[in-house]
Write a protein that binds this DNA or RNA. Structure first.
Lengths: 335, 335
DNA sequence: ATGAAAGCGCTAACAT
DNA sequence: ATGTTAGCGCTTTCAT
C-alpha cells in the first residue's frame, strides 16, 4: 500500500481528517496527536501527493518562467534570481523557451490557462499585435509579471531597467568618445524594450545635433547568419559608422565576430557598446563596454512580486513598472 | 461553473466518460460524437485540469532538472537541449539549482519521492558519500538519468563526455606546446567527472615522464575569492607552472582574472586550456583553447532517454554510460 | 479535539 | 458506442 494520509490514519487509529490537519499543524489538533502523527510520518517517510493537494486546493505551487532563450547571460542570471526566490518560498519553477517564436509562446501560455501554474513570469518574444494568450491569463486568475521584455498594454506589473536612459547614455558615451556616425543594432522591430533603448539613443543624437537619417538602425533577428550579413554590409559600406550600440548581447557578439572577419579594429576603427549581462565582458578582446543590466535582481524582484500576489486572497497585480537601473561600465571597446 | 468535462457532458447530453474518451480520441467513440465534443471543447476553450489527470493517472508530465548552477555555459546549453526534447514530447521542465550545496540537493530530490515529477535529470553537486536521496528514487519508481556530473554507484544511465580522454588530450596538448610544469585546477575533490579528467591528465604526465609531485593539483570550490587566492598563490610562487588545465569553466575564467591582476601574459608566461562550452571563447583575450563539451546534445540525449523510459510500462533504466565526445579547439591561450 | 463525509476533475473498469 | 460508477489522495465543511 502506498504511503498516504489514509495509511497513517489507519496505523495510528485516527481519522484521515485528523491526520491531514495535524500535518498542516492546525490549532484544532492536540499537541500530543500532532507529535504522534509527525513522528510516524517521518518514520515511514510520508510525502504528500502534490496532485491530490493541488486538485483539492486549486493551486499547484508552480510558477512558469517563459523566456525567448537561455543562451544569453541576462536570462541565465534572471532564472537564477527567480529560482532563488521560488525555492525560498517553496515554489517550483517551470521553464519554457520560446526561441523567439510567437506561435510557440502562444501554445505555451495557453497551457497555463487551466491552473497548471499559479502564476507566470514572462519576457515576451515579440510585441505581436495579439496578446490574447496573455490577457486571457488575467481572466482566468493566473497572475502575470513581465520582466525585461514587457508588454505595456496589459494591466499588470513589469520589472524593467532604465532602458530609455541607457540608450541615451550609450549614445552619449560614444559621442563623447568622438564618434560621428553611430549605428543602432535593434532586435526585431516590435520589442518595447528595444524601442525604448532606441528612443533614448535617438534623443541623444538629436541633442548633439546628429542627423538621424545618417545614423542607421539595423533590425536584426534570431538568425545569426542573416544578422552577420547585415552587420557586415554596414561595416563594409563606404561611409561606415564609427560607433555601434548593440541592443542585446547576441548582436554585440555577432558584431565582434564580423569585425574580426573583416579586420576592423575595435575601438580604433569602430567603437562598440552593448546591453549585456556578460560576467566576462572584461575578458573579451577588447574588453567590452557594457550597459550591465541587473538581471539577477530583476529576476528576484519579478518572482517576489508574483509570489507575494499568490499569497493574497485576490491575486491580481496592479499595473506598475518597477525600474531597477543598469550601469554603464566603460571598457576598452569604446576607448 | 468551471469549464470541465462534466460541463461538456451536460451541455452535449453525454456521459462524462464519453467525453473523456472522445477527448483522448478513443476508438470506442464514434466519429460523429468525437467531432461534436472537439468542436464544443474548442468553442468554450476547454482545457483539462492537469492535476485531476495527474492524480488519477499517477503521472504528472513533468520532469525535473537539477543543476549546480545556471551561470555556466555548459548548464545553460544543457537546459536548452532538455527543454527542446521535453517541449516536443509534451513534457514540462522544472528547474532546480543546488548552488553546489549537498543539503539543498537532498531537500530538492526528496521532494521528488512522491511523484511530483515523472523523472529526474541531474548533474550532481558533489559525490557525497550518501546517495540515499537519489537511490530512493528508483525504489519509488522515479527514473533518474545523470548527465555530466554523474554518480557511478547508482544503477542507471549516465550521459557523459569522454572526460578521461580529454584530460589526457589537454595535458598532451600543453606538453606538445612546450609546457614543463602543469597545474590542474580541480573543482572539489569528489566529483567523478573531475577525477576522470584528472586521471587522464596524470596519465599523460606519466607517459611523458613528468614527475607527478611537481605538477600541482588545486582543489577549488564554489567560493570565488578563495579560488582566486589559491590560483594567485600558485602563479606567484617561485617555480610557478607554465601550463594550466582548468577542469570547469569558472575556474578558467578565474585564472584569466588572476593573470591580469598579477600581469602574467597568456600564453607567453603561462598557457591555459579549459573545459568549457563558452560560445565566445574565441573572443576572449587571448582566445581560449577549450575542450568544448557537447552540452546541448548531452541535454537532448539525457532528456530523450528519460522520456523514452517514461513511455514504457517498466520505466526503469538500465545501467549504461552514453558517451558523446568533446572536441579540443586550439586557440591563442596555448599558442 | 476528533471524526464522517463530500468532492476537487478526471480516468478506467465494467456495465449496457 | 455510450453510460454508470468507483475511486486517485487530499482538504474542508460540518457534525460529535
Amino acid at each position: 500500500m502506498n504511503i498516504t494520509i489514509k495509511k497513517i490514519a489507519e496505523d495510528l487509529q485516527l481519522a484521515v481528517s485528523t491526520v491531514s490537519k495535524a500535518l498542516r499543524d492546525s490549532h484544532e489538533i492536540s499537541a500530543a496527536t500532532k507529535a504522534r502523527v509527525f513522528a510516524y510520518a517521518a518514520e515511514i517517510d510520508y510525502m504528500p501527493n502534490p496532485y491530490a493537494s493541488s486538485l483539492k486546493r486549486g493551486r499547484s505551487g508552480n510558477i512558469a518562467v517563459v523566456l525567448p532563450e537561455v543562451a544569453d547571460s541576462f536570462f541565465s542570471a534572471a532564472i537564477n534570481g527567480i529560482e532563488e526566490v521560488a525555492q525560498a518560498q517553496g515554489y517550483h519553477v517551470m521553464v519554457y523557451l520560446t526561441h523567439e517564436n510567437v506561435k510557440t509562446e502562444q501554445a505555451i501560455v495557453r497551457d497555463f490557462w487551466n491552473g497548471r501554474v499559479d502564476g507566470v513570469l514572462i519576457s515576451i518574444t515579440s510585441d505581436a499585435k495579439d496578446y490574447n494568450h496573455l490577457s486571457e491569463l488575467a481572466t482566468r486568475n493566473v497572475p502575470l509579471v513581465f520582466f525585461d521584455r514587457i508588454c505595456e498594454d496589459l494591466n499588470t506589473t513589469s520589472v524593467v531597467t532604465n532602458d530609455q536612459e541607457c540608450g541615451y547614455n550609450a549614445a552619449r558615451h560614444l559621442i563623447h568618445r568622438g564618434c560621428k556616425k553611430i549605428a543602432f543594432l535593434a532586435l526585431f522591430d516590435d520589442l518595447s524594450i528595444v524601442r525604448k533603448r532606441l528612443n533614448g539613443f535617438q534623443q541623444a543624437l538629436r541633442e548633439y545635433n546628429f542627423d538621424l537619417q545618417q545614423n542607421p538602425i539595423l533590425y536584426l533577428t534570431n538568425d545569426e547568419r542573416f544578422n552577420k550579413e547585415q552587420i557586415r554590409n554596414i561595416l563594409e559600406s563606404k561611409d561606415r559608422p564609427d560607433g555601434i550600440v548593440g541592443s542585446v548581447e547576441k548582436v554585440v557578439m555577432q558584431t565582434y565576430d564580423v569585425c574580426r572577419e573583416i579586420r576592423l579594429s575595435i575601438p580604433n576603427d569602430i567603437r562598440i557598446i552593448g546591453f549585456s549581462h556578460l560576467q566576462i565582458a572584461h575578458l573579451l578582446n577588447p574588453s567590452l563596454t557594457t550597459i550591465t543590466q541587473p538581471a539577477f535582481e530583476m529576476g528576484k524582484m519579478a518572482a517576489s512580486i508574483l509570489i507575494k500576489s499568490l499569497t493574497k486572497k485576490s491575486s491580481m497585480i496592479r499595473k506598475e513598472q518597477i525600474m531597477i537601473p543598469s550601469v554603464l561600465i566603460e571598457r576598452d571597446s569604446t576607448k
